[in-house]
Each structure stands twice: as structure tokens, then as C-alpha cells.
Design a protein around this nucleic acid. Structure first.
Length: 409
DNA sequence: ATTCCACAGGAAGCGACGGCCC
DNA sequence: GGGCCGTCGCTTCCTGTGGAAT
């Protein structure tokens, strides 16, 4: 019987091991990062001699290898420590997800086998549980705080203050911190004492240029693809496209992987330029669609309002205009009307997600406002918005183009 | 030089919720 | 079940401000 999967299985795969191209994979060789790796290693090596390593702050844009390097050095340290009888524990926290003092402490305590609930305990209780867990350990503990700027922006620097003084309460163990941040300026928001303690050492990760990206891709492609599965122009193209996006290696690897998936899907025996082009387009579109789809209803309606104004021909809208359209639409579908202040925040969130871009401008006598413009494809986004049943009703009442103002006010 | 618009965006706090402890 | 605690989405109240108009 001709099975559903038979055809698909018969196609000649271009991949040898696709996992190598995923962001979760930590490579065993990191091209163009020898200086940074050495710098971190030199600081951490004292842990093996029973001393406390300095705290480190690592800066660099997304996809410059910060996380990979930190994890890599951490793993090496743990291994070498184990073989020399000096235990070194490394805890990794992504502060984008774990973004409050309570959650950080709870997460850490859990790493050391304490049972801590999601919420419910007073924070200082979680703190003392963590101390207790640490005192049961020996040797060094390295805590990697990834996306640290997100945590600080949201919850302030209390966590860092407590963590940076934690050694005072420990008897057997020594704790060192590695903070990782995209944002060079985030230490400005820190208490000076916290800043000086946290940034005893600073390491900068510059973005990769196209040539360096090519080396990285070639390195991984060797593991990921079968021989001759890549046309010669593919890697340079991926590298060049990603270099335009401020040298983001993650994007480059993603692009290469999706290109391969496309080639496989159309049963090509090798990856070609056209597959890369398709992949590039598809990645961006998928990203946007996914983000928009998972927006809360109110945020969707704000975005809908911005799009409505843009459909009307406005190059950019102001906060006030968006607000007025939003309120009208809101009443139309009987949604609770949120305050202007809240809308300001929702607009900011859309900006942060890269769906719109905003700029504060002063119109002198006529006030100060934000110019808001859509930075994603209008029609695609609009379609995704209409998938929401609560917004669906608005489609019928599509305002006559060119006359939104009159039909609304 | 001063005024003043139309907002930006900080601070505080509220109420609901989920979840702890006793 | 009652008293707390942390978190989230939101409101209320507020101070701050760039620059055209006066």
C-alpha cells in the first residue's frame, strides 16, 4: 500500500543532523570568540584554587555568542573542577522568563533540590531556603543571569543587591555572578554599590561581520548537512543577510536551517539560493504572525486602530489619534474601554515587539506626542488580526477608505 | 523670554487570582 | 477557612518637557 509517509521518506534528505543548527545547541567550538572565552576563563579559574572569582558583566547584541560562551566556560569549569575534586556548580537563569526577585530565588533554590512553590511564600523565606541549600554545598557556585537588563528593568536591583552580598552569609560555598545584557546602558539604573560589585570585570562581545558569520555557518554546516548538500552561494548569502541584521548569528543559523527545510520539502537534492530567499521571507512573516496572534485582545485592538489609520493613508499616527479610533472601535464591539495611560503602555509594548516603531516628537505649540508607524506588512498583519473572533465583527464595518475620520467622528 | 499644548511616562495602589501556611 | 504573599492588568494622580506661537 502506498503509505502517506512513504513518499516523504523516500525524498533525499539534505540534513545529517539538524539539531546542530538550533539555538539550544551549544557548540564545542566557537569561532572568533577566543579572546572573550579566555577572558572569562582567566577570571573563573581562581575558583579551582578555592578562591572567589570576580563577578562579570557581559555585554553584546543578540546572537553574538554571549550565552554560548558563558555556558561553554561554565561546563568546562564544572568538568575540570570535578576531576580535581573542587566542585563547581553552574546555574543558568534566563531572566526574560524568570523576571522577579521571588522567581529568581525560587528558581535557584530549586536548582539545589529545594522544593519552592511558584508563589505563596514570603520572599525572605525563599532567600533563606536558598542560603541553606548553598551551605549544604561545597566549592564554587557560578550563577549566570542571562538577559539581566530585562530583570532589572522590571523588578529593579534588589535581587542583584542580595545576590552580590550573599557570600557574607555563606560558610562553605562561594558565589560568583555572570550577568549577561544586550543593553550597554542598563547599569545606569543600578545602585552604585550594586554596580561596582557586579561589574568587577566587563567583557564586550562585538557583533560578527559577514566573514565571521560565514566561518560560523561553515563550521556548523559541516555537522548539520550531508556532503554537497549546500550550493556554494548558500552560506555567503545567509551570512550576508544576517550581517545586515546587526550580525546576529542566531538569525544566520535559523536562516540556514529553514533554507534546508525548504529544500527538503520541494525534494531538491541540494540547498540553493532560491530556498534561502524563500526562507528569509517566511521567517519574518511567521515571526510577525505568531507575535500578533498571541497578543492580548486589547493590544490587538490598539494595533487594529493603528492599521485602520494607516489604511486611511496616514504615514504615521499620533497617540491621540490612535486613542480616539481605539475608543470608537472598542464601543462597537463592546469591549471595556481602557484608559489613555494604559494605551500608552500597550503602544510601548507593541514597539518593543517590533510590530510598530515610535518616535517622540514635539510639535511645539501643538504639544508633544509619539509618531507611530507600522513596521510590518500591513495586509498580512490585518488578516491575522481578523482571525480573532472578537475583532472579526469589525471587518464588515470596514470604514470607507479615505474617509475614516468622517465615519468615525 | 515666556507661554502652553498634548502628550510622555513615573509612582502608588487597587482588586482579583493562585497559592502558601497553620 | 482565614490570613498572608506575589503577580498581573489596570486606574488614578501626577510631574515633566520640546519647541511653535506669542
Amino acid at each position: 500500500m502506498e503509505g502517506l509517509f512513504d513518499n516523504l521518506l523516500e525524498s533525499k534528505p539534505v540534513f545529517k543532523d539538524k539539531e546542530v543548527l538550533r539555538p539550544s545547541y551549544t557548540p564545542s567550538y566557537l569561532p572568533h570568540r577566543r579572546d572573550q572565552l579566555n577572558a572569562i576563563a582567566i577570571i573563573l579559574v581562581v575558583a579551582l584554587r578555592g578562591e572567589t572569582p570576580s563577578n562579570i558583566l557581559v555585554y553584546g547584541k543578540t546572537g553574538t555568542g554571549k550565552t554560548a560562551c558563558a555556558k561553554y566556560v561554565g561546563r568546562e569549569l564544572t568538568d575540570v573542577g570535578a576531576s580535581r575534586g573542587v566542585p563547581c556548580n553552574v546555574a543558568y537563569i534566563n531572566c526574560e522568563v524568570v523576571d522577579t526577585q521571588y522567581r529568581v530565588l525560587a528558581y535557584l533554590a530549586r536548582q539545589f533540590d529545594k522544593d519552592v512553590p511558584m508563589t505563596g511564600w514570603p520572599t525572605d523565606h525563599v532567600y533563606s531556603q536558598f542560603i541553606e541549600a548553598l551551605n549544604a554545598q561545597a566549592g564554587s557556585v557560578i550563577i549566570i543571569l542571562d538577559e539581566l537588563d530585562k530583570l532589572v528593568r522590571k523588578s529593579g536591583d534588589d535581587v542583584l543587591y542580595n545576590l552580590s552580598r550573599i557570600n557574607l552569609e555563606l560558610t562553605n560555598t562561594r558565589v560568583s555572578l555572570i550577568g549577561i545584557s544586550n543593553d550597554l546602558k542598563f547599569t545606569e539604573y543600578l545602585d552604585p554599590r550594586v554596580r561596582s560589585s557586579l561589574a568587577e570585570e566587563e567583557i564586550i562581545f562585538p557583533p560578527y561581520d559577514a566573514n565571521q558569520l560565514r566561518d560560523i555557518l561553515e563550521e556548523r554546516a559541516r555537522l548539520a548537512f550531508k556532503e554537497h548538500a549546500l550550493n556554494p552561494e548558500v552560506i555567503p548569502l545567509c551570512a550576508a543577510l544576517a550581517a545586515q541584521e546587526h550580525g546576529d548569528a542566531r538569525r544566520a543559523l535559523d536562516l540556514l536551517r529553514v533554507s534546508g527545510e525548504f529544500a527538503e520539502r520541494v525534494n531538491a537534492d541540494s540547498v540553493k539560493e532560491e530556498h534561502v530567499r524563500t526562507a528569509q521571507m517566511r521567517i519574518e512573516l511567521n515571526r510577525v504572525a505568531e507575535v500578533v496572534r498571541t497578543l492580548p485582545t486589547q493590544a490587538k485592538l490598539v494595533l487594529y486602530s493603528i492599521i485602520t489609520l494607516q489604511q486611511n493613508g496616514a504615514r504615521s499616527a499620533t497617540t491621540g489619534e490612535v486613542n480616539r479610533v481605539y475608543e470608537t472601535l472598542c464601543r462597537q464591539i463592546e469591549l471595556d474601554v481602557l484608559t489613555k495611560r494604559r494605551i500608552t503602555d500597550l503602544i510601548m509594548e507593541l514597539d518593543l515587539l517590533g510590530i510598530i516603531s515610535t518616535k517622540v516628537v514635539s510639535k511645539g505649540r501643538y504639544g508633544r506626542t509619539k509618531e507611530i508607524s507600522l513596521s510590518v506588512p500591513l495586509d498580512e498583519t490585518f488578516r491575522v488580526l481578523l482571525e480573532d473572533y472578537r475583532l472579526e465583527a469589525l471587518d464588515g464595518t470596514r470604514f470607507a477608505r479615505r474617509s475614516v475620520k468622517e465615519s468615525l467622528f
